[in-house]
Design a protein around this nucleic acid. Structure first.
Lengths: 344, 344
DNA sequence: GTGAAAGCGCTAACAG
DNA sequence: CTGTTAGCGCTTTCAC
């Protein structure tokens, strides 16, 4: 009972997990600053002191409270990524690329789901900002005017991805959805298609691609594509229904371009059920290059944007700014790749 | 220039976004506590004071620093959810259910991707704990011994989902994968199938279902199922290859049970390419009840676990504990539903 | 090699 | 209705 030299030490943390430097210091018989150093610059301690402190840390289950660190150092050590919706396409890839770069530079990534619409969106943004992230990645979120002001005033580097906003807040990385729409149209025409249909989800990016697709078709002198819009996030079932709808309006179409692979897969399913040969009678293309696109039968032509690379780029831009390095460019186009396969 | 009664006020926040109560108070000509109250209990302020403070808040772009609040109040106001991998199945649903309950009780949800394997996992756990979440949701993560100790010592409510660990740390919500494996086998047998095959991803839950499936088949006196394991996360391409493999080993099988719908879809594709009739010659079933399962042709029999409901339950358990309410049960079985469709 | 003092931005508790 | 004081847990600066 007489082992710890406790004068007026705080009682051992009531709730475990709430141990502080004081508890550890008391147990190790040193001052709190020594414990702090044991964690951050162990080389500066005498080996035996270090050992004693480490033992005390283990015994107390001490985990430093980063709220205190953040406050004191004015550095939170994390970057926040805001997504409208986690199932929204391949945010997983983007997050992998982001984590890769950020963790190499000592930053953590915290993900927040911000949801669509409602005033709630700004509340969540405010909450995120309140935790003082050192940088922000915003993915496919459209901001309210109030939100834009918040972001501007935040005074931290911000990267917007996917939705290449016309009025970027700060930095941007993504692909040109205009060019994608054009490329899709060109590909179908190259494959000899003339009577096009378009099935697009109603999110901003898809709509932008769709608009350019239609414009390109007009420029090439084609008949105006039969265009359908479905609610995002798009589904296989919508794809089936869409083909039925398209055929009802224009039985002679020879190609369908879809904004997602799931939609395109629905179109393929419906075509098969109706005995329509793909690609002989009907060309089908998707978007996003999902894993299954390449192994369907017929394999599905799609357009790939490298999510992981997008994440890496975003991470590098943030880190450059955080380390005060000059940024070669504020806007990065990661490009896209048209994966031509059997379905066209 | 003489409008603000500034005695020895801090200079207006150099970096915008770093405004503090002091700046706002200086601008509004009140003390900092008044600003604090304007935010938290506006009813206690004189209307005109309130208006002046609000104006100052808007002018400075002040966003409260929650690190300071967390420190002072010993309450961080958030719950962390740790996932191995965001694309891993339908975490999106779970997160939606979780958010629904937590936000109704004033908690935010922060998501952290913890990754598979490597010592990194414990570092990330430590980092998460360092931010002092008030509760933790752990999804499909297996813990190292050191990790378990950290979690135990954290002293906060913890819910494990999906991977229904044999040695739960604290609370658990999910379905019995043993019962699912059995139900899958029973269903195929009911449909008159006798020569079963099994294609399973190598994650813990799938393996557990697979083991029980095989055991059940034995109990029912069936020939031992042809069993294949593929690397998680499972894919459509793996499903195609798996059917080829299964047929090479046992050409006479009449049913394939897959651990995911993507795998099952691959099996369907491969069967179609080979001219095998589903379900006449071969029954196929999946797992997870993805959106596309119901609208494939033939539609795919699958097993559904309600991710959103799982999230809700987890949220409610956490909130109950955080509000010191007695918890009816520490372990909740959300059940599952076998969606019998055309493919079987 | 180790420690004492000060203060990051905020709020609870108590004045006035 | 408004302000003062103290202190949350940590790190920076300066002493010893």
């Amino acid at each position: 009972m007489s082992q710890a030299p406790d004068d007026e030490l705080p009682a051992p943390a009531a709730r475990p997990g709430s141990a502080t430097l004081h508890h550890v210091a008391g147990l190790a018989g040193v001052s709190i600053i020594t414990v702090s150093r044991a964690l951050r610059e162990p080389a500066k301690l005498a080996p035996e002191t270090l050992a004693r402190v480490r033992q005390a840390i283990a015994d107390t289950g001490y985990v430093p409270n980063s709220a205190a660190g953040t406050l004191r150092m004015a550095r939170s050590g994390f970057v926040a990524a805001l997504v409208p919706n986690l199932q929204a396409s391949n945010f997983a890839q983007l997050s992998a690329g982001l984590t890769e770069v950020l963790s190499a530079h000592g930053y953590q990534l915290l993900i927040g789901e911000i949801g669509y619409g409602g005033g709630r969106e700004d509340d969540l943004l405010r909450a995120a900002l309140g935790r003082r992230p050192e940088g922000l990645v915003i993915t496919g979120v459209r901001h309210s005017p109030a939100g834009r002001v918040l972001l501007r005033q935040a005074g931290i580097p911000i990267v917007e991805t996917w939705d290449l906003a016309d009025e970027p807040i700060d930095m941007r990385v993504g692909a040109s959805h205009e060019r994608i729409g054009e490329a899709a149209c060109d590909h179908l025409v190259q494959r000899g298609r003339q009577r096009l249909a378009l099935v697009s989800a109603d999110d901003e990016r898809s709509l932008r691609r769709a608009a350019r697709f239609v414009r390109r078709a007009a420029a090439l002198g084609l008949r105006a594509p039969v265009a359908l819009t479905v609610a995002a996030p798009s589904t296989h079932a919508q794809g089936r229904a869409a083909l039925a709808d398209v055929l009802a309006r224009a039985p002679d179409i020879d190609a369908v371009c879809c904004s997602s692979d799931l939609l395109a897969m629905g179109v393929l399913t419906e075509a098969r059920v109706r005995g329509i040969q793909v690609p002989q009678q009907l060309a089908v293309m998707g978007g996003g290059d999902a894993e299954f696109a390449a192994s369907l039968s017929p394999s599905l032509t799609s357009i790939r944007i490298d999510g992981r690379e997008t994440g890496r780029q975003a991470g590098q831009m943030l880190v450059a700014r955080l380390e005060q390095r000059p940024l070669p460019q504020r806007h990065v186009d990661v490009g896209f790749e048209l994966m031509a396969r059997e379905s066209t």
